[in-house]
Design a protein around this nucleic acid. Structure first.
Lengths: 223, 223
DNA sequence: GGGGTATTCAAGAGAAATATTGAATACTCT
DNA sequence: AGAGTATTCAATATTTCTCTTGAATACCCC
């Protein structure tokens, strides 16, 4: 607590700033944060979705927690983690910068998409208006808890696994826009394939919850 | 280029995103980026200001360049580095999140400031209007090149080292608001001390160029 | 072309991060 | 209280960063 020199101040300050950026400096942790922006989750479910061992997931979550990027709450036998306020926006910033400046990223996604059907990508601006007027059906194919944690206003929830069995719930002849967790989530891609195979006109909405909130789209919580 | 599984896609994508966040994951590199948001600089001048060896600075800059966060241009004998578009905003996001969520940060700066005179901190909103009306003098105490690379509209440039000798240039009886590179730069703090010792009413503007631009304040380039 | 200088490269030592395994903890439910 | 389970901790091997030192490269200027 004695007087700091300017150099010591800067070192100390930037060391603190680096706590945040170091916590983000891992592909796995970025993926975990993306999952968490779809709602709170337990360790085990995060581990499964991110293809990590539970112990490894737990230790990544400890790193995030030490940097205050996530919050943990133990309820009963389970610990649920949630993303801390403002973190979603920063992760989104990383994604946008990477998309803007790293050509490799679009190469990768294009390679992936090229091996599937080309998918029309819809932008969020116009979508809501069309959805409200009934011109399109907006379909959320994520897990029900994720839908409950926040979804687009007019969306209906049919998890991808149930889609084939529940196609009859969708109005025929109306275009379907499917979305899931964001641009790197493949659920909606598969949903579109299934829908087209069943004779629907279908397209995928690129954006996920982090994008909606950043864009100021009203996100509805709970069923 | 053969078909990727969804898992491989995600791994590849998040690995790319992590290129960006890994490049930010170092106290020294964050400091370099902050310096670069005050204008392009050569390796040697960055090394000096960040208290690093030239070779070490160079290799940090290579890391930043590999992630496309800075751009290098060789002109004559010198290589000048400049911050890439959109990067400033991301660094600012890291800073804001750290300030909001890491109590240690404000402890450190308060400890530092407590050992100096308490300084009134001015917020940028009201400042411009007051400056334009001549009610206050806005003083940029950074290096002349930094001033030239972008400064507040009504500011005049007097580098800190010359301040004592050039006090007579400032209108007497008018409050002075001094700024430098941002909240963790100490130049303005010392300028305020010197100004007060000379009988001026003086205060420090916390914000630096990254903040102005994020706030949409018009930043003037060149003299 | 040769001297001088800014920057980068290469090699190596030390420190830190990552993932794995197996054990320990903390809680619920009967 | 005891069985069962979700999570964390501890120890370890592997890899990846960081900084230093000394040499190599690229360019200007005379």
């Amino acid at each position: 607590m004695s007087a700091l020199t300017p150099r010591e101040l800067k070192d100390a300050v930037y060391e603190q700033l680096a706590r945040v950026s170091k916590a983000l400096a891992s592909a796995k942790r970025l993926e975990l944060l993306d999952l968490l922006s779809n709602g709170p989750r337990t360790v085990e479910s995060l581990a499964e979705q991110a293809s990590l061992s539970v112990a490894n997931t737990s230790s990544h979550l400890q790193v995030l927690r030490a940097a205050r990027l996530v919050e943990a709450e133990k309820r009963g036998l389970f610990v649920t983690y949630r993303i801390a306020e403002g973190v979603e926006g920063l992760v989104l910033g990383v994604r946008r910068l990477a998309e803007a400046r790293l050509g490799e990223l679009s190469e990768i996604t294009e390679t992936f998409l090229a091996s599937r059907d080309a998918l029309e990508v819809v932008d969020g601006e116009a979508l809501l208006a069309r959805a409200l007027s009934g011109e399109v059906t907006v379909l959320d194919v994520r897990a029900p808890e994720e839908y409950a944690a926040g979804h687009l206003p007019t969306a209906r929830s049919i998890p991808l696994a149930e889609l084939r069995a529940r196609l009859h719930e969708l109005p025929k002849g109306v275009e379907v826009i499917a979305y899931c967790r964001g641009p790197y989530c493949v659920l909606a891609i598969e949903a579109v394939s299934a829908l087209r195979a069943a004779g629907f006109t279908a397209a995928r909405l690129h954006a996920g919850p982090a994008d909606w909130r950043a864009a100021g789209v009203p996100v509805v919580a709970s069923a």
